[in-house]
Simulated assay, not measured.
Amino acid sequence: MTTVELTRFRTHPGRADELLRARPGMLAAFGADRAGFVEARLVRLPDDEWLDIVVWESPEDFAASRAKGANLPGIAAFFAPISDLIGSEEGDTP
């Protein structure tokens, strides 16, 4: 069973390109630093909103990642253009 993290957020106006440029570095940092990271997909929504869908091997892996926060430059660079967290949920796949 895997855990899926769904995070909806908004970027600062005009900073979507910065977010997209930082994405590969964030994914590389997750792969190197986060146990249980499986994959991530970023979905662009209207009005500078985004949905990040991240798959983890277990709820424990997700919790450990969340506790680390933006501990590496590649992750911090991805978070920098984000202005508002709209919502965050997690669920397990059967």
Rank of each mutant, 00 (worst) to 15 (best):
R44K: 12
S88G: 13
W56E: 00
A67G: 03
L85C: 08
N71D: 12
T3Q: 04
A32K: 11
P73H: 07
L85K: 08
R34T: 12
R23A: 14
L19Y: 01
L27P: 02
F78G: 00
A29I: 00
M26D: 06
G69E: 02
V38Q: 00
L42S: 05
V43G: 10
R8G: 09
L72W: 14
A77M: 00
R41S: 14
S83I: 10
S58N: 05
E89W: 12
G36C: 03
F62E: 12
G91R: 15
D33Q: 15
A16G: 07
D92K: 12
A80L: 05
R21W: 05
R8K: 12
P94T: 10
A70N: 11
A64R: 05
M1Y: 13
E90S: 13
A63L: 07
M1N: 12
F62M: 10
V55M: 11
A70H: 10
D48R: 07
L42T: 07
E5K: 06
P81K: 01
G36I: 04
E57T: 14
A77S: 01
F9Y: 06
A29L: 00
K68R: 14
E57W: 05
A76K: 05
T7D: 10
V54F: 00
L85D: 10
K68M: 13
E60M: 11
A40H: 04
D61I: 01
G91D: 08
I86K: 12
A67Q: 06
G14L: 04
A70F: 15
V38E: 00
L72C: 14
G14M: 05
T11R: 07
I75S: 05
L6T: 05
S88N: 15
T2E: 13
G87F: 08
R41A: 14
A16L: 02
P46A: 09
T11K: 06
T3I: 08
L85H: 08
A77H: 02
A63K: 09
D92M: 15
E60T: 15
H12Q: 11
